[in-house]
Nucleic acid binder design. Structure first.
Lengths: 200, 200
DNA sequence: TGCGGTCCATACTCTGGCGTATGGATACGG
DNA sequence: CCGTATCCATACGCCAGAGTATGGACCGCA
């Protein structure tokens, strides 16, 4: 562990190796899951040894929490990009749908987090991120004219469909849905999920 | 490992300890995931030792595959109950929705299987089960009057919403949705997912 | 030139789970 | 009453990964 840096890390050198550990950890999680995040295999993957790791981090939990914090911040920034704009709700949601449909590291990490149950801190991160996204969807649906209760239900339906598709894609089931097929499906989703509810 | 039983297992005695191992394995998987399925902890949980395990099974893979086969057979039987009936498609689907909404061991195991990536055999089981359920939904939607492509999309939407809800519930996020709230949501789903598509 | 600080390699110990070997206990048939 | 088969406990060896201790390479600076 870095003993309370007495001197600033010499801004000239890169020396951002802690960052690479965090990034590598997220990629590893996305690929193999949280439980599979081990120090020595990751070190081998990076071409270094544990000596490096234990200089930058206290232990495995430290790396895990540190990496997830980084991920959470990134996700919040991502979401904010869709909250700030003052465009109409329908347009914003459509844009959100289309952007979210594309697989990326962020979503893979989310899938891993949702899949395995890590410790309390991991669950807390997962809860915060999920709640933020959920609230975003609920607000969007209300802006679309849904009644509060219906908006909540619709947000839940939309979000669970997102989460479920993530899992299925991750396992290679339900065809990767690339290109035209994906667009086609997204259009279907927009047709079903973004239309005002029929009076029941 | 049982050396090629020279004599039938004396039908008088229960001696079905292999079954208890399988059941316990499924419960353990439902609770802690596939990766966490270990022999010694499970033996401690059962109040026995590894000696018992290695008499009934060759190794960990043996138990895992054996338990999952049992689970798969159970799931197929469950699904068949909704395929056999000659009731109208809409009624059948509604019944399916309501029944599926209740959490149970089967669904927890499915969630675990969907979450972590085990070996090839596990993935094969997962694929078969998913495909069967998916086909069931697709056929039901076609019977409801959906065009083939739309039925496939709708089946995907429905199924991913199911899978996603499973995961969220498993993590204790999105409120367990018990009782009235659950019924309420299921009604919403039926309203959104079981109505014929509006002409787009 | 030597000194402190940064970053990593090497060489341990320790823990937990896997798989094996072997013997003990119980029940049943002859 | 003995032999055999079933089922499980005990006691090992083995291995991978966690965490620790220590030294060494390299750099900036006085």
């Amino acid at each position: 562990m870095p003993r309370t840096a007495l001197r600033a890390p010499a801004a000239s050198r890169p020396a951002q190796s802690a960052e690479s550990w965090r990034r590598a950890a997220l990629e590893w999680i996305a690929a193999h899951g949280i439980a599979a995040l081990a120090i020595e295999p990751l070190a081998r993957h990076l071409g270094v040894t544990k000596g490096s790791f234990y200089w930058h981090f206290r232990d495995r939990r430290d790396l895990l929490h540190s990496a997830l914090s980084m991920w959470e911040a990134h996700d919040e920034a991502q979401l904010a990009a869709y909250t700030d704009g003052s465009e109409p709700a329908a347009v914003r949601l459509e844009r959100f749908f289309r952007a979210t449909a594309k697989q990326s590291l962020t979503h893979q990490v989310y899938a891993a987090l949702l899949a395995e149950q890590g410790d309390a801190a991991c669950l807390a991160v997962l809860k915060r991120v999920t709640q933020k996204r959920f609230d975003f969807l609920g607000a969007a649906y209300r802006a679309l004219g849904f009644a509060p209760a219906a908006a909540a239900h619709q947000a839940r339906l939309t979000y669970t469909a997102y989460a479920g598709l993530l899992q299925l894609q991750k396992q290679g089931i339900a065809a990767p849905l690339a290109g035209a097929a994906l667009d086609n499906y997204v259009e279907h989703l927009i047709g079903v999920l973004l239309k005002p509810l029929p009076e029941v």
